[in-house]
Amino acid sequence: MRDEGDHSRYSRTGEALAPAPERERAFRKPPPLHGRESHIRIFDADNEARRVYGETQRSRDGSLPKEEHGPSAVLKALDPFWTRGIIPEDEREGDEQD
């Protein structure tokens, strides 16, 4: 079967047999949710969001904003309702910052 590489134009000139693949743009992804990889790719190489969140949300590790709905960390601790699913395991640490 004939493919792109067999095309006489490429053969004749001796150039690359196929166009150079477009260089993949730099991107970042949101952190995983319950261990599931995010399906979002954000094309900003300088990770601007982390810098901004670092300033405005006081995230200690520069991560995205934490869950903000629900009561204070004290109330959450007193009432199992809020820890039964409302605040996932991976977000409980650091609640105090809110």
Binding site: P30, S38, H39, I40, I42, D44, E48, V52, Y53, P65
Partner: peptide
């Protein structure tokens, strides 16, 4: 993911 990233 979207609602947690109000900058993007």
């Amino acid at each position: 993911d979207i609602v947690r990233d109000p900058w993007t």
